[in-house]
Design a binder for these strands. Structure first.
Length: 205
DNA sequence: TAAAAGATCGACT
DNA sequence: GTCGATCTTTTAA
């Protein structure tokens, strides 16, 4: 009785393994809900592309919290990017939420993204954060009980959305740019285009 | 259609 | 002081 299965329990697994399971899930903040269409996996101390590669810092502290915690960080001083903390306790891992499709709250999103077509509202991690109205104040909050909720197929009928997905190299990384840890829904306009880092390692010279 | 560069500012070394 | 898990616009083929 008291021990009902925790729908978030699977988040304790390896990031690159459970990442596809978040495709089709729904992230909700207030009136706005977004169905995830693109996710990237980041490991801990063995992933050169991860914020946690060089150990804990002020910014990535949330990555060391329990799985199911929201990790928000500021990119280039202006973009708020959202991650779902995953992996076993003590092993920092995260899933960068790169893109999604707005399912509710279109009115609010339309005002936040003037002049942008519907399919591109949450195209790219920065845009997804802006569409949902996320801020650094949400960093470290619990995705089950906090202001920002993650709805899984097992917890929400809306999130029960089967998808066809594929994988490829992560976007914009300078190191470990060849790991196919980017997972994206097939045939969805909200999936961002792949762009390799200008100075990515292991090429030319 | 694809590639390049600028904006912009906090975090890290 | 340097560099980004980015976004947008501009320029070139």
């Amino acid at each position: 009785m008291s021990s009902s299965p925790d729908p978030f329990a699977f988040l304790a697994g390896p990031p690159e393994q459970l990442a596809p399971e978040l495709l089709g899930a729904v992230l909700r903040h207030g009136p706005v809900a977004v169905r995830l269409t693109e996710v990237e996996a980041y490991g801990g101390s063995h992933d050169p592309g991860s914020h946690a590669y060089r150990g804990p810092t002020r910014r990535n502290a949330s990555m060391y919290a329990d799985a199911g915690t929201l990790y928000c960080y500021l990119s280039h001083g202006i973009h708020v990017c959202a991650n779902v903390v995953v992996g076993p306790v003590g092993e920092p891992g995260a899933l960068l939420l790169r893109a999604g499709r707005v399912v509710t709250g279109s009115d609010a999103v339309e005002q936040r993204r003037p002049g942008v077509v519907e399919g591109s509202w949450a195209r790219g991690p920065g845009n997804l954060g802006r569409s949902l109205g996320l801020g650094l104040e949400h960093d470290g909050t619990d995705l089950r009980t906090g202001p920002v909720r993650l709805e899984l197929p097992s917890t929400s009928s809306v999130a029960a959305h089967p998808v066809t997905w594929t994988s490829g190299p992560r976007v914009g990384l300078r190191s470990a740019s060849d790991r196919p840890w980017r997972f994206m829904t097939v045939d969805d306009p909200s999936v961002s285009a792949y762009r390799r880092h200008p100075k990515a390692d292991g090429r030319d010279r």
